[in-house]
Computed example of a mutant assay.
Amino acid sequence: MTATYRGGELVAEIVRSGFAESLHRGSVAVTDPAGALVAAIGDADSPVFPRSSNKPMQALAMLRAGWEPDSEADLAIAAASHRGEPVHLARARSVLAHAGLGETHLQCPPDLPSDPTARNTVIAADGPEPRRVYMNCSGKHSGMLAACAAAGWDLATYREPDHPLQELITATVEELTGETVGAVGVDGCGAPVLAVSLRGIATAFSRLVEAPEGSPERRVADAMRANPILIDGTHGPDHRAMSAIPGLLAKGGAEGFHVLAVPGVGAAAVKIDDGAGRASMPVALRALTRIGGLAIPEAAKPEVESLYWPEILGGGKPVGRLRPLL
């Protein structure tokens, strides 16, 4: 991998009332089921921060550390970027409780739920005081703590890059991507974030969905696909896409990142240069269908079309769409 991400090409536009008012540039990597690169747009080989798109690999490392979740839903929340809805909070608390831990052990920042209904409910019931469990990465942090408890590792320093859990996560990411981590940063939740290429993370997601049934890799993929509402919430694009497309594994990340994979088809990874999350799912879906050859079932087409071409509102009514340019 080269040292610096070089940026991408024009991949999407915002059309309002027939006028293109905004443009998004980015990079795309599409791999086959074996993880071989079949197409690239922009820079598919330099390291970038996938942000929360790394979470499935982090959850895999938690299993490898000896964590045995009480349910596959608990495993799914460890790979989630949840919205603080009641079902999300229940699962994060379940992970902690079954490890003999509590919310006081969490080291993600305090926050309020990002889902508007959940936020209003919490404020009405408990007041506007942010709590760590409401933060969208609390499931991951709960899983990290549970893995440390299972392995007998120190709980107080679980976010440090030289902690045994974080070293295992790095090794797991490098194994699945086939790359050496290009950089280590601090994610929004305070845990380390590891830089890999779009090619590498697409390869990793293909390996998750193509792994033998019952293997730790496949357990992570299956738990996420069986519990899509936990991954990003009721109205989240990952929930909607995985519910509509059989076999799809989807995980978005901050700053315009998205990875999709389907067994027997391959994977698509997208980085939007300006960090706009609104463009990442449409471009990734378009790449996996137009380039990767994913066939959309007839019954799923209305939902997939709404993810391809998200509506732009004016006066509360649709007046345009985001349009992928692949």
Rank of each mutant, 00 (worst) to 15 (best):
133 V>D: 12
120 N>E: 15
107 Q>A: 15
128 P>Y: 14
151 A>N: 05
105 H>V: 13
163 H>F: 12
141 H>I: 14
104 T>E: 15
140 K>R: 11
136 N>Q: 12
177 T>M: 10
92 A>R: 05
85 E>D: 09
143 G>L: 13
159 R>D: 02
104 T>W: 07
189 C>S: 00
105 H>Q: 15
159 R>V: 11
134 Y>F: 14
185 G>T: 13
171 A>Q: 12
85 E>L: 12
174 E>K: 06
91 R>A: 15
127 G>A: 09
151 A>Y: 01
131 R>C: 08
117 T>L: 08
88 H>F: 07
104 T>P: 05
145 L>G: 08
98 H>F: 13
150 A>K: 07
135 M>R: 00
153 W>V: 04
122 V>Y: 07
90 A>I: 09
110 P>H: 02
186 V>H: 08
176 L>R: 05
102 G>I: 13
133 V>C: 00
185 G>I: 11
139 G>S: 03
90 A>N: 01
121 T>K: 03
188 G>S: 07
141 H>N: 06
89 L>Q: 01
88 H>M: 04
110 P>W: 02
171 A>V: 03
172 T>W: 11
149 A>K: 04
154 D>W: 11
94 S>K: 04
97 A>C: 11
114 S>G: 03
88 H>L: 06
119 R>P: 10
154 D>M: 00
129 E>M: 10
154 D>C: 09
89 L>N: 00
99 A>F: 09
146 A>I: 08
98 H>M: 12
102 G>N: 08
164 P>L: 05
133 V>T: 05
165 L>W: 08
100 G>A: 14
187 D>P: 08
86 P>Q: 04
148 C>R: 01
158 Y>C: 10
152 G>M: 13
187 D>F: 04
90 A>F: 05
155 L>V: 12
125 A>G: 04
88 H>S: 08
170 T>A: 13
109 P>W: 06
163 H>W: 06
137 C>F: 05
99 A>V: 14
168 L>M: 14
111 D>M: 11
99 A>K: 05
190 G>D: 11
113 P>N: 01
153 W>P: 00
168 L>A: 13
88 H>T: 07
88 H>N: 03
179 E>V: 11
121 T>A: 14
87 V>A: 10
156 A>S: 13
97 A>D: 15
141 H>M: 09
88 H>G: 03
132 R>N: 07
154 D>V: 09
115 D>V: 00
160 E>A: 15
131 R>S: 10
129 E>D: 09
112 L>I: 12
115 D>I: 00
87 V>P: 01
113 P>T: 04
190 G>Y: 06
96 L>S: 02
108 C>S: 07
123 I>R: 03
110 P>A: 14
132 R>G: 01
112 L>A: 10
117 T>Q: 03
183 A>N: 12
173 V>I: 15
110 P>V: 06
91 R>P: 02
141 H>T: 10
86 P>V: 15
189 C>W: 02
189 C>D: 03
157 T>H: 10
112 L>R: 01
123 I>H: 06
141 H>S: 05
116 P>S: 07
144 M>R: 01
173 V>M: 06
166 Q>A: 08
116 P>E: 06
92 A>F: 07
182 G>H: 08
154 D>L: 05
190 G>I: 02
97 A>P: 11
115 D>M: 02
179 E>C: 12
181 V>Y: 04
88 H>K: 12
129 E>H: 11
133 V>E: 12
163 H>D: 04
179 E>N: 10
174 E>N: 01
149 A>Q: 14
132 R>H: 04
117 T>I: 10
135 M>T: 04
146 A>Q: 07
158 Y>R: 06
